[in-house]
């Protein structure tokens, strides 16, 4: 039996009269690549923010890496990594300085930070850029670096909020290589994306429509279930019944 690292039950978030996330229940196992899909405004960003401890749920229950979402936020924070759709390293710091900063924030020791920096820069092939400002790097490199920094402290789970937005297909492919490598080392990947080809890369995929999870299975099972040739069609089949306007949440 695989260890469960994310488990939610009837997790709900309301903003006034508006229910952004309406009682979602699912669980994710260790080392899994879990795709969290949905149209704009379906509520996936809100759901993800709750799971990261950025936003308190209105009702329901969840445990992340064994910590309760209401009482264990400090424990959750130590055991997750996060990378958001906006690029989120400091542009006016160099590559090395960014690594050192985030290592320091997660309480790594100087020795560890030094080893990790060398390893990371080596594996990304950024030897010559190590002392350059992050702002001067191309977007694709920044994204890869941001991902590597997000898993610097070897978290149990890493949350990726549309990590490949605006990146060319080749770099996206390389980015997914990084994700596979991280998953192989036992880190659970929780990823939202708009690209349906990326959905195919995931172990399991959930489809969120109007704050509710409408479907959750492996990509091949989903295609079978909806008699669709691609994830694109599955998504379209589910999303077209959406009552929410895309810009509502």
């Amino acid at each position: 039996m695989q260890e469960i690292v994310i488990k939610t039950e009837q997790l709900t978030k309301r903003f006034g009269d508006f229910t952004a996330v309406d009682g979602i229940s699912f669980s994710v196992g260790a080392g899994e690549i879990f795709g969290f899909l949905g149209a704009n405004g379906a509520g996936k960003t809100t759901a993800m923010r709750m799971l990261c401890g950025l936003s308190a749920p209105s009702s329901g229950a969840a445990t992340i890496a064994g910590f309760d979402i209401y009482t264990g936020t400090e424990g959750i924070k130590r055991n997750i990594g996060y990378m958001s759709q906006k690029f989120s390293l400091y542009e006016d710091l160099t590559v090395l300085e960014n690594i050192r900063l985030f290592g320091g924030i997660y309480g790594l020791r100087d020795r560890q930070i030094k080893d990790k920096s060398e390893e990371l820069i080596g594996s990304l092939g950024m030897g010559r850029e190590a002392k350059k400002l992050v702002g001067s790097l191309p977007l694709g490199w920044k994204q890869k670096l941001a991902f590597s920094v997000a898993i610097l402290h070897t978290p149990r789970i890493v949350f990726l909020d549309e990590p490949t937005g605006g990146v060319d297909p080749v770099t996206r492919r390389q980015f997914w290589d990084l994700i596979y490598a991280a998953a192989a080392s036992g880190i659970t990947i929780f990823v939202t994306t708009h690209y349906m080809d990326e959905a195919e890369y995931c172990g399991r995929v959930s489809m969120m429509v109007d704050g509710v999870i409408k479907a959750l299975d492996t990509p091949s099972q989903l295609k079978q279930q909806f008699a669709a040739g691609s994830m694109d069609e599955v998504f379209f089949e589910l999303a077209r019944n959406s009552k929410r306007k895309a810009d509502q949440a």
């Binding site: 990261c52 401890g53 950025l54 400090e74 924070k77 130590r78 958001s84 989120s88 924030i105 997660y106």
Partner: peptide
């Protein structure tokens, strides 16, 4: 604005 505040809030700092 840069989105780094979110990263900081998600971190244990």
């Amino acid at each position: 604005e840069n989105g780094t505040m979110e990263i900081l809030l998600v971190s244990p700092i």
